[in-house]
């Protein structure tokens, strides 16, 4: 059974669709825990810090970004926890999933920025290639 489910979230609608699939997988077992992982991107740290009046406000701002996903999980009575990582989204998710020996990674196919995707490649593609466990990419 899939016990430890990593759900990558970035505030997009894709992430919400991924959440719905993660819920389906989690509902197969009572022991399942979904770990919602949000990566605070290094490229945006300066902007984030500059526009937040305190470290606490910044924390809340980031939690707001995954509120849509959190709500979906709460509504479906799935047990979950929230993890905020710092770094580049792709590598951080991969490192975290492999270190924690996740059973499955669920990730949306496309994040927020399509231009960035064209230039540096999509996060989901990188994750799929380098994570040891199965990956579910949600369209």
């Amino acid at each position: 059974m899939y016990k430890n489910i990593l759900l990558a979230a970035d505030g997009s609608n894709n992430a919400l669709r991924a959440a719905n699939e993660a819920i389906k997988i989690a509902s197969l077992s009572n022991e399942s825990v979904i770990d919602i992982v949000y990566v605070a991107d290094y490229e945006k740290t300066k902007e984030d810090v500059l526009h937040a009046s305190s470290a606490d406000e910044l924390m809340i701002e980031r939690r707001k970004k995954i509120q849509n996903v959190e709500k979906a999980l709460k509504d479906n009575n799935v047990s979950y926890k929230v993890t905020i990582l710092h770094g580049l989204p792709g590598p951080e998710i991969i490192k975290y999933a492999n270190e924690r020996k996740m059973d499955i990674v669920v990730i949306g196919s496309r994040g927020l920025n399509s231009l960035q995707e064209m230039v540096i490649g999509s996060v989901s593609h990188k994750v799929m290639k380098r994570v040891y466990c199965p990956v579910l990419i949600v369209k």
């Binding site: 605070a40 290094y42 740290t45 300066k46 984030d48 810090v49 500059l50 470290a55 910044l58 710092h86």
Partner: peptide, 12 residues
């Protein structure tokens, strides 16, 4: 101090 805040956040 602004830079310190940025480094704080990046490194957690």
């Amino acid at each position: 101090l602004l830079t310190a805040q940025i480094v704080d956040d990046m490194t957690g």
